[in-house]
C-alpha cells in the first residue's frame, strides 16, 4: 500500500498511508476510534476507492476481481436473520465466486470442524450470539481468501469460542493467508500479531514487527528481584542507573546513558545485593499506543 489518500469533503480520513503486509502474517491494525481504520479497510475491500495512492495485492494492482480473494468480517456483524444458516453461507460463498458444489464441499469441511452439523437448517436468529459469530467467521473464510480482514474478531465471544477462532486464525496464517487484524484490545495484539501498524488521524504513525517496535520504544528499564539488601543504600545515587520504583524485594531501574546491563549487575553484586532475577522491561503495545497517539495529538 503506497501513499493512499481518502477524503470525505474537507475531511481527510486517510492521509498518505503506506505499509506492507507480508504473506502469512497476522498484521495488527491499531488506532483510536475515528483514526481511519474503517476507511482503509473499505478501500482494501474495494467498497470505496482511494483518491490517490496505489494498493497491490499479491503483486497486482487492486482491481475488481480481487474481492473474491479477500475475506472481510466487519466489526458490526451482519447476517440475514431470517435465512437458514446453510443457505445463507452457500449464497455468500457464491457471491465470492464459488460454485454451488464448491460451496457445499467447503461448508461440509467447516461444519465438521466446528461440529455444527445440526445448524444447517436453522435460521440465524435462532442461534445465540456466539454461534452467529462462528457462522460469520465461516462466511469470511469459506472461499479461502488470500487476504483476511478481521475487524474486532473476538468481540462478543466467550473464552472457549475465542480460543477456537484464535486457533483457526493462526492456522490460516500458517497456511499463508495474510491477515489484517483490527482491534482496540492491546493484549490481543501482543498475543496474535507479528506486525503492527498504528494509524492516527489518518496517518501511519508507527509500523513494524512487534518485537522490533518494542525494542524501538524501550526505555532501558529493568526489574531486579533480590533476596537481601541490608548492605545496600537504596537512596544513594550512582552513575549506572536510577531507581524508578522500590517495592521491597524488587526494584525497577533505568539504565543511565552509556551503561550496560552487566554494569548494573556488577554494581549490585559488589554492593552485596543478592540478585534473584534480572529482567528487561519492554514497553507493552498498550504503552506504545498511548504514547504515540499522545505524541501525535500534541
Amino acid at each position: 500500500m503506497q501513499g493512499v489518500v481518502k477524503t470525505y469533503g474537507s475531511f481527510t480520513a486517510v492521509d498518505h498511508v503506506s505499509f506492507d503486509i507480508p504473506k502469512g502474517v497476522v498484521f495488527g491494525m491499531l488506532g483510536p476510534n475515528g483514526a481511519g481504520k474503517t476507511s482503509l479497510i473499505r478501500i482494501i475491500t474495494n467498497i470505496t476507492k482511494a483518491d490517490a495512492g496505489q494498493i497491490w495485492l499479491d503483486g497486482e494492482p487492486l482491481n475488481s476481481r480481487h474481492p473474491e480473494q479477500i475475506g472481510y468480517m466487519p466489526e458490526e456483524r451482519g447476517l440475514y436473520k431470517k435465512m437458514k444458516v446453510g443457505e445463507q453461507l452457500t449464497y455468500l460463498a457464491r457471491l465470492k465466486g464459488l460454485t454451488a458444489a464448491q460451496a457445499r464441499q467447503e461448508l461440509g469441511f467447516w461444519f465438521k470442524r466446528f461440529d455444527i452439523g445440526t445448524w444447517w437448517d436453522k435460521k440465524v436468529d435462532e442461534l445465540s450470539k456466539g454461534m452467529q459469530q462462528k457462522v460469520q467467521f465461516i462466511a469470511t473464510v469459506l472461499h479461502k481468501p488470500k487476504l483476511l480482514i478481521l475487524d474486532e474478531p473476538f468481540s462478543g465471544l466467550d473464552p472457549i469460542n475465542a480460543n477456537l477462532i484464535e486457533a483457526e486464525i493462526r492456522e490460516l496464517a500458517q497456511q499463508g493467508t495474510s491477515i489484517i487484524f483490527s482491534t482496540h484490545r492491546m493484549e490481543q495484539v501482543e498475543e496474535m500479531c507479528d506486525h503492527i501498524v498504528l494509524i492516527n488521524k489518518g496517518k501511519n504513525v508507527l509500523e513494524g514487527r512487534v518485537a522490533e517496535v518494542k525494542q524501538r520504544f524501550k526505555e532501558n528499564l529493568f526489574r531486579i528481584e533480590y533476596g537481601n539488601a541490608q548492605a545496600f543504600d537504596l537512596d544513594a545515587t550512582n552513575p549506572i542507573f536510577n531507581i524508578k520504583k522500590n517495592e521491597g524485594q524488587a526494584l525497577t531501574v533505568q539504565l543511565a546513558e552509556g551503561a550496560a546491563t552487566n554494569d548494573v549487575l556488577g554494581y549490585l553484586i559488589n554492593n552485596g545485593v543478592e540478585v534473584r532475577s534480572f529482567n528487561e522491561l519492554l514497553p507493552s503495545i498498550n504503552d506504545i499506543f498511548i504514547r504515540r497517539v499522545g505524541e501525535t495529538i500534541s
Partner: peptide, 15 residues
Amino acid sequence: EEKTSRIVEVIISSV
C-alpha cells in the same frame, strides 16, 4: 433490514 443488520457491508465487499 440489510442496513440495520449490517449484512450489507459483507455483501458489498463481494458485489
